[in-house]
């Protein structure tokens, strides 16, 4: 597979916007397993077309980034082809992998020079006033108590790692970047923040707040 992928002739064919011979899922899988150059070429063209559409509104998603993402995605699709269960169209599945790959690279470029410490300690985030108009005085007090309890639980109930990961995520830092700073991986970061959310939920319930208090708009 790798030798085929590295052959420039496979990928130097001009993109063709005309519909090609439709391939069903079985044909895609069979042709790619057999390393048919036409299938690789068709998949490459289709993924590039779909990525252009998917990321049309994303700044910095230039043609060279998209082409690199397609190249990486072809490798990933081929590596995972045995995991394709046929529950969607093959091209939808392959496109989901390509979008994941391209967006990960966009996020990496955006955040690569940002330190975790700076993100977590950054106080320059413009605070939004609590919108309490229309609430009763009781409602306002409940909301204030809820926020105070949440702040306390974050400091007292979470581990340092959970607190750092959760704060960084709330500041918009991508999970892959948090993982890189913590010497971890995205799945582990998800578990870290999921465990943190579970602790906070349990803490709020133990403090007497109901689901209605938590979901009421601030």
């Amino acid at each position: 597979m790798a030798s085929l992928l590295s052959r420039p002739s496979v990928f130097s064919l001009a993109a063709n916007d005309e519909p090609k011979m439709p391939r069903d899922n079985e044909s895609w899988v069979a042709d790619l397993r057999a390393e048919r150059e036409s299938a690789l070429s068709d998949l490459r063209d289709a993924l590039l077309r779909n990525l252009r559409k998917a990321l049309a509104t994303w700044p910095h998603a230039d043609e060279s980034l998209l082409e690199d993402a397609v190249q990486d995605s072809l490798m990933r699709v081929l590596e995972r082809i045995e995991q394709f269960e046929g529950r969607s169209r093959f091209l939808t599945w392959a496109t989901s992998i390509a979008i994941h790959t391209a967006m990960a690279e966009l996020r990496r470029r955006r955040w690569k020079d940002v330190s975790l410490e700076k993100v977590v300690s950054d106080g320059d985030f413009a605070p939004v006033q609590l919108t309490t108009s229309g609430q009763t005085m009781d409602g306002k007090l409940v909301q204030q108590a809820l926020v105070a309890t949440m702040q306390r639980l974050i400091e007292q109930d979470l581990t340092e790692k959970q607190r750092t990961a959760l704060k960084a995520e709330l500041k918009g830092m991508p999970q892959d970047e948090i993982a890189r700073h913590l010497g971890s991986n995205r799945n582990a970061v998800y578990k870290l923040t999921h465990d943190a959310r579970k602790k906070l939920k349990a803490g709020l319930e133990a403090a007497g707040f109901t689901a209605g208090d938590v979901t009421a708009p601030l």
Binding site: F125, A126, P127, V128, Q129, L130, L146, V147, M150, Q151, L166, K167, L170, K171, L200, V214, T215, L218
Partner: peptide, 8 residues
Amino acid sequence: ESEIDSLL
């Protein structure tokens, strides 16, 4: 406060 909002 907006982060708390998201967190809630």
